[in-house]
């Protein structure tokens, strides 16, 4: 049976992980390769690396880093952040990324998704959506949550899937950083109505929150960053807890 997936997310800036203190068992917690390999050895099912570097040099640095991650990490990983062309994606996939995620660039130029899916296959195209609930619905936000749009998250997700997105990474801005749980309603709406996997993100604070998002919202995967980086929740304990609660997990 297909398992639910636990996905730690690592923010990368200038080739280093931004968060990630408090790891006495690895030499350099700022090293994305070492941190990624550690999570893989602990039972993470996949990794997401989000590049938040803003300089012009980023592309070269990133592809070199992706090569080293692929060399050392024996589980699948997604790379996102500032990807806006077929060429960007080609470089990252050839460097060894398994999937890439697009966000603002795809919203501004939706045909990019068609092109990427045709060129590389839907299975490696993840659409990331940042969404906020206001005035009775969930709206898409762009540029890392700074720019509001008047398009509803569900409508955009549906269009993106029709264009060839193979997976949706949904981050609720209302929940992100609160540690009060995932946004179950919008996650559930997407997961139960779209025929591609949905990765829930934003709000994880306790192990029960993961049970909720898998059982109640039927998310296919759950992503979190700080609770793993700061060891508030450790992956082996989380997977054991979920398994005890009847959620299918890989061990």
């Amino acid at each position: 049976m297909l398992t639910k997936r636990i996905i730690p997310c690592l923010d990368i800036k200038d080739g280093r992980t931004v968060k990630g203190i408090n790891f006495e068992n690895i030499r350099d917690a700022g090293d994305p390769i070492e941190l990624g390999a550690l999570y893989a050895s602990q039972g993470a099912d996949e990794l997401v690396f989000l590049d938040i570097t803003a300089t012009n040099e980023r592309r070269k640095t990133l592809s070199a880093l992706v090569t080293e991650i692929a060399r050392h990490v024996n589980i699948p990983f997604t790379v996102g952040g500032g990807i806006s062309s077929v060429e960007d994606v080609s470089v990252l996939l050839q460097s060894g990324a398994d999937k890439i995620s697009v966000n603002t660039s795809a919203f501004k130029n939706p045909v990019l998704i068609d092109h990427l899916a045709r060129e590389f296959g839907s299975q490696c195209i993840v659409l990331a959506i940042d969404t906020r609930y206001e005035e009775g619905d969930w709206y898409v936000y762009l540029n890392g949550g700074r720019v509001k749009t008047d398009i509803k998250a569900y409508d955009w997700a549906k269009e993106a899937v029709n264009r060839g997105a193979g997976e949706i990474l949904l981050t609720s801005m209302n929940n992100d950083g609160t540690k009060k749980g995932f946004a179950l309603d919008i996650t559930g709406q997407l997961s139960q109505n779209l025929n591609v996997p949905v990765i829930a993100s934003g709000g994880a604070g306790t192990m029960e929150h993961f049970v909720d998002v898998f059982e109640n919202a039927q998310a296919d995967a759950a992503l979190a960053a700080s609770i793993f980086h700061y060891k508030e929740i450790e992956i082996p304990a989380l997977k054991n807890f979920l398994y005890q609660k009847g959620v299918n997990m890989r061990f």
Binding site: M1, L2, D45, S122, Q123, E167, Q192, N193, N195, R250
Partner: peptide
């Protein structure tokens, strides 16, 4: 192919036994 009674996600992505 998706059976009528439930939605099957295609592609299958993830860990299976």
């Amino acid at each position: 192919t998706s059976p009528v009674e439930n939605l099957l996600k295609i592609p299958q992505i993830g860990w299976n036994n």
